[in-house]
């Protein structure tokens, strides 16, 4: 079966999850188009992070379906979903603290010959060569994201903003088909927000599809091509930001409140 390029890179159907009787996600259904930046927005407690964790397999859904590039990955363990071409970042950065920044990237690369011990002992030359090439590629990415000077530091020593960049670079080295970003700009300074926005747009222009959770609607309007609104664990609406501002349901459930809050800042 060949996948039509127009089919969504990622789609969810009727995702449901409850924790100890409390429903967190209640039938989330949406598509993420290819080569675009899609924002996942919604009021606090709408289940945005849970949806991302359900898609990436950190949490098992009670029911529902997730499709990545035409493949049904529902119920798969996280590492297999990742191998299918999905990478994610975390709202609170989760760096591999005891390893160097360079190693954080290197470990994340796909299909490494040396991840099999048989190859480590029987094909040491091939592993060595691949390692050096991989290190070079990792350095190039670190350079792109302004982390080159930190390459040999322990990742736990990085600042909050640097950790955000590290998470993005760690995802990028795996060259994912779809990248899920959980609030990539939360808690970083305005200059860096600008920078991260540019990085995300660059990734899209390089052919990557992106789904990002974002609170700041100004940013969403500026960089996102497409928006999915989640409320009470359900998909409320999808479309462009400008269309959604006209949608009364959305405004009532979410936008009005946040726009006011934004103005108050």
């Amino acid at each position: 079966m060949t996948t039509q390029p127009t089919t969504p890179i990622l789609s969810t159907r009727e995702l449901r999850k409850s924790f100890l009787g409390v429903t967190a996600v209640n039938g989330a259904t949406f598509d993420v188009p290819r080569n675009l930046i899609t924002a996942l927005i919604g009021p606090n407690g709408a289940g945005k992070t849970t949806v991302v964790s359900l898609i990436s397999g950190q949490i098992k859904a009670d029911s529902g379906q997730v499709t990545i590039d035409g493949a049904d990955v529902s119920g798969w363990p996280a590492h297999r979903i990742s191998q299918q071409g999905l990478m994610r970042t975390f709202q609170l950065s989760r760096e591999l603290g005891g390893m160097t920044v360079l190693e954080n990237l290197m470990v994340s690369a796909r299909r490494q010959t040396g991840e099999n011990l048989v190859n480590v002992f029987l094909r040491p030359g091939a592993v060595k060569k691949e390692e050096a090439a991989l290190a070079a590629r990792a350095l190039e990415i670190l350079n792109r994201y302004g982390l080159y000077h930190l390459r040999d530091s322990r990742a736990q020593a990085l600042s909050g903003g640097q950790k955000k960049l590290l998470e993005i670079s760690r995802a990028v080295i795996a060259d994912p088909k779809i990248l899920l970003l959980d609030e990539p700009m939360a808690g970083v300074n305005p200059a860096l927000i600008e920078k991260i926005g540019e990085y995300i747009i660059d990734l899209r222009d390089g052919g990557m599809s992106i789904l990002m959770i974002e609170h700041n609607l100004g940013i969403v309007e500026k960089i996102c091509d497409n928006v999915v609104v989640l409320a009470e664990g359900r998909t409320l609406a999808t479309g462009k930001m400008s269309e959604l501002r006209e949608n009364e349901d959305v405004v009532r459930a979410y936008l009005g409140e946040v726009i006011n809050a934004d103005n108050g800042r």
Partner: peptide, 21 residues
């Protein structure tokens, strides 16, 4: 080896290790 690096990734954060495949 890269295998040892995966071990260390699991030690530091097994959730992240699964996330990166």
């Amino acid at each position: 080896s890269p295998t040892g690096r995966v071990f260390r990734a699991i030690r530091d954060d097994s959730v992240v290790a699964a996330t990166i495949g």
